[in-house]
Design a protein around this nucleic acid. Sequence first.
DNA 1: TAACTGTACTACATAAACTAATACGGTTAG
DNA 2: CTAACCGTATTAGTTTATGTAGTACAGTTA
Lengths: 127, 127
Amino acid sequence: MFELDLRSREPIYQQLVNKFKTLIINQVLATDEKLPSVRTLAQQLTINPNTIQKAYRELEVQGYIYSIKGKGSFVAPIIEQENQATLTTLKEELKKLLSEAIFLGLTKQEVIKMIDQIIVEVEGGEK
Amino acid sequence: MFELDLRSREPIYQQLVNKFKTLIINQVLATDEKLPSVRTLAQQLTINPNTIQKAYRELEVQGYIYSIKGKGSFVAPIIEQENQATLTTLKEELKKLLSEAIFLGLTKQEVIKMIDQIIVEVEGGEK
DNA sequence: TAACTGTACTACATAAACTAATACGGTTAG
DNA sequence: CTAACCGTATTAGTTTATGTAGTACAGTTA
């Protein structure tokens, strides 16, 4: 199923994350399809289950899959994937920008004001 | 001149970078003003000159100072308008990103948390 | 209850980051 | 021109972070 480079500079779990991302984005793995269990895949690749676990957690954080204890890990609904993935990226960019802006003198109050304004625009004042 | 926290989790050179940034941005150090030499400051702070050097290099890379071998390190010309312009640009980018992120589910609380975190990093927990 | 599932905790090896010791090369006052 | 300043490169040692593995715990289902 996978070809891993065990002695690559790129961590194994990262390779797994990328492989799965590709498969999921290209719809090779359908929504709600079950991924191999951490143990199964680990045995198959002759690596430690915890490495698979780390990859799966990363995929989950990034919104590509969801895991249920005792049941398994599954491909997340596409829209949610996209949004979560995008959001994660956005958060990183946001943090960089915010750091820079705060350093240049942007105040917390200004940012909050900005957010309030945006929320009004986007959500029309709900919440 | 400086108060360093030698056993902070934040690297010494990073603390120095931040202190100098603040001083330069707030015009406490004027344009072309000479910074203490790496050895002088090192002796004063009882740390290694190389640590100062690392801080100075970082400041140079980020455009805050310039160094001349054999002469010293000096505050780089900082045009206030440039900063303001940068800040304005950043604000626009910020607004776009924030709009997108909030649309995707980022909450106001998350952003505020993010800001607090950044402020702590930038100011290094003084007060 | 047995055989699956994900997950938490710990430990260990390795890689990266940080700081220091030393030496080298440019500038300038005397 | 040399002594006393400057920044900088190289190297090494120490600490910290990262990646992986071993083991044990906890939920699910037939």
